[in-house]
Amino acid sequence: MGLRGFSMPDEIYFLCMLHNIGATSSDNSLTLEEIIRWTTLEPDKVRENLQKLMETDYVQRVNRSGVERYHVTVNGIRKVLSMYS
């Protein structure tokens, strides 16, 4: 069936990277610049992925000391783990 040839969506692969880096709670949230540095993706692509993941409640944006930071939500963690188990 078709799924054998179906590749993982970009934003889900990106979500896995965020999870593996350790951005899984507000305390461990990362700034846009830090995410760009870790993932080595183009800034526009990082913004696009974050936007998609926030819309699906897999990533949350928090504001700490006036700086926007991002972390994977509990739903996002479950999404990531479902791929590895």
Partner: peptide, 28 residues
């Protein structure tokens, strides 16, 4: 570890130790 859960708890005699991974990497 998992958000919202303690690093140690005793669940009816089962001692659960949740480990925090202090450093990460994008590669699985």
């Amino acid at each position: 570890d998992f958000p919202g859960t303690p690093l140690f708890e005793d669940l009816e005699g089962v001692k659960v130790h949740r480990v925090r991974t202090e450093i990460g990497h994008p590669n699985f």
